[in-house]
Amino acid sequence: MKLLFKFFLIPFFLTAVLSCEVHLEDNTRILVEGTIKDQDNMPVPDAKVSVHTRRGNFSGGENSYLLGEGYSATDGTFSVISFYNKDEDFAIEVAFGETYSTYVYKSNTLNFTPVNLTFDLGTVSLKKMASFNYNIVRISGESTSITYSFRYIEGFCLESFEGETLSEYQSACYQERFIAQTLNDNNPDYEWLLQVPLGEIVEFTYSINDEPEITEFITINEDNYDFTFSY
């Protein structure tokens, strides 16, 4: 048994642990370039462009490893020099905190090397984000309940590529999100904040005491949009 442990299990364990290490391509650098514009076609300066590779970890989640990073210039152009990794989850993220939406270019690079070692993302459109602060307040006294929902566009765009071909099945760009909740005597009031692209419409649907649903459309036209609904 000891022999089995020594000659088989230890090498197996070491291989399993060491295989979690990320091995970057030696003697290789790539260039990531493009231009960032907002929904009004205006350049977005100072957006962060980061190149990542991802790996599963022991807990079943994913770790993200930074290979290169840079920022867009005043005219919105960016040019980031990075290491390269051949991996199923090679990603380039364009982000600007909560001010703008986030764009992710994801590619399987196991069998793919870009032409001239350059990932040209072209024009990346980021949407300026607004904070939609909603506050549902009960003023009608006890035993009144409300069921409501918000339908809105999230500020995230993932484009997944197989080589140079966009995989629409694996992509998810500015998708519609839906949240719903019921408030009653146990929990009569609720306040929350959503990040929504500026200029988008939030669909608010509610029903008080199981009466027919009513829908309101709210255009987010301010950076900080406060919405209070009393029932």
Binding site: C20, E21, E25, N27, R55, Y65, L66
Partner: peptide, 13 residues
């Protein structure tokens, strides 16, 4: 000196 110790080193010649 990468952002994580999982990337130990990279070599150029």
């Amino acid at each position: 000196g990468f952002s994580t110790s999982d990337i130990a080193e990279q070599h150029d010649s």
